[in-house]
Simulated assay, not measured.
Amino acid sequence: MRIRALVVAATGAVALSALAVPAAQAAPAAPAGPAVTFSNMKINGGKNIVVGPTSKVTVSATYTVTKPAALKASSFITGPGLYRGATVDPDSNQKILSGDNEGTCTAVAGSSTVLKCKATIQLRPKPNDVNEQLTNADAGTWKIAAIAVDTTTFGFTTQGNLGTTKVQRQSKLTTDATPEPVKKGKTITVTGKLSRANWDTYKFAGYSTQPVKLQFKKTGATAWSTVKTIKTSSTGALKTTVKASADGYFRYVFAGTTTTPAVNSAADFIDVK
């Protein structure tokens, strides 16, 4: 069950109980959450999270929970989440990217207070839970949080600022060098396209006005050399010309941005006569 679902149940229960209290009395306070703290949170092994235009992506999370010795591990559940803003607040309309299931925790040998935990987070471009569906505006940096929920009272404890990660729109890059074969000294035209996942339309779309390097590697060489840098068109298209000098391979290389990962195209061989 999603952690958010438990929080909604908890806050809903508090709201219903408040309605039953006479107006002259104070509304009941929300139940306190487990007295735990989180540390050592790592999402996706510390790597950026890259999501395509349609498919769900599941990433791993590992973290440490420290609890009072008297608090039973079986009395609460935990899970990680990604959020934006100054604080994390599941009891609101704040967008939180979380997991379909709670984390699993194991006691550290010889300790009554430390648990080592693991969980997963699911990211979806296509509709599922409206509050957690990715849109293009979601690409970029997210803060990392964790939550613990008391399984009896549904009181919850949150802790934010456990690190950051980037959620990025998957990129693709192509290269096509023509004509082939070509005479030495003649003009080679190298075309291509830089595109990235569009989470609003569930397709790939051109990434405009981005600097992309054209690189060449002579047959038998081990290293690539940069020939020039050009920018993509308004549709993500690439086109430039070079003089044929020797047999070898051309490729385009994109360094990436905060919202879009770096990508190299496949190499395209050119036969120079």
Rank of each mutant, 00 (worst) to 15 (best):
residue 78 T to F: 09
residue 117 C to P: 12
residue 130 V to G: 15
residue 136 N to W: 14
residue 82 L to A: 10
residue 122 Q to L: 13
residue 129 D to Y: 10
residue 74 S to A: 10
residue 145 A to K: 01
residue 79 G to Y: 01
residue 86 A to N: 15
residue 156 F to C: 11
residue 92 S to I: 10
residue 123 L to H: 02
residue 130 V to Y: 07
residue 96 I to C: 10
residue 139 A to W: 11
residue 65 V to T: 01
residue 138 D to L: 04
residue 68 P to K: 08
residue 144 I to E: 14
residue 135 T to P: 02
residue 66 T to M: 14
residue 78 T to R: 09
residue 68 P to Q: 06
residue 104 T to M: 05
residue 88 V to R: 09
residue 66 T to W: 08
residue 86 A to Q: 15
residue 115 L to F: 13
residue 157 T to K: 13
residue 124 R to M: 15
residue 116 K to I: 03
residue 82 L to Q: 01
residue 153 T to L: 05
residue 154 F to N: 14
residue 87 T to W: 09
residue 123 L to Y: 02
residue 101 N to F: 15
residue 115 L to P: 00
residue 76 F to G: 00
residue 94 Q to G: 15
residue 148 A to F: 03
residue 134 L to K: 00
residue 69 A to R: 08
residue 132 E to W: 10
residue 121 I to V: 11
residue 103 G to L: 01
residue 158 T to V: 12
residue 154 F to A: 04
residue 96 I to Y: 01
residue 94 Q to M: 13
residue 130 V to L: 04
residue 77 I to Q: 07
residue 157 T to W: 10
residue 113 T to N: 03
residue 107 A to K: 03
residue 146 A to K: 07
residue 133 Q to N: 03
residue 93 N to K: 12
residue 115 L to A: 04
residue 135 T to G: 10
residue 116 K to N: 13
residue 83 Y to K: 15
residue 94 Q to T: 14
residue 122 Q to Y: 09
residue 103 G to N: 08
residue 140 G to P: 05
residue 138 D to F: 04
residue 91 D to E: 15
residue 146 A to G: 03
residue 109 A to F: 00
residue 149 V to I: 14
residue 136 N to H: 12
residue 96 I to A: 05
residue 109 A to P: 04
residue 67 K to L: 05
residue 72 K to W: 11
residue 126 K to W: 10
residue 103 G to F: 11
residue 133 Q to E: 11
residue 152 T to Q: 07
residue 86 A to K: 14
residue 132 E to T: 08
residue 152 T to M: 05
residue 126 K to E: 14
residue 68 P to W: 05
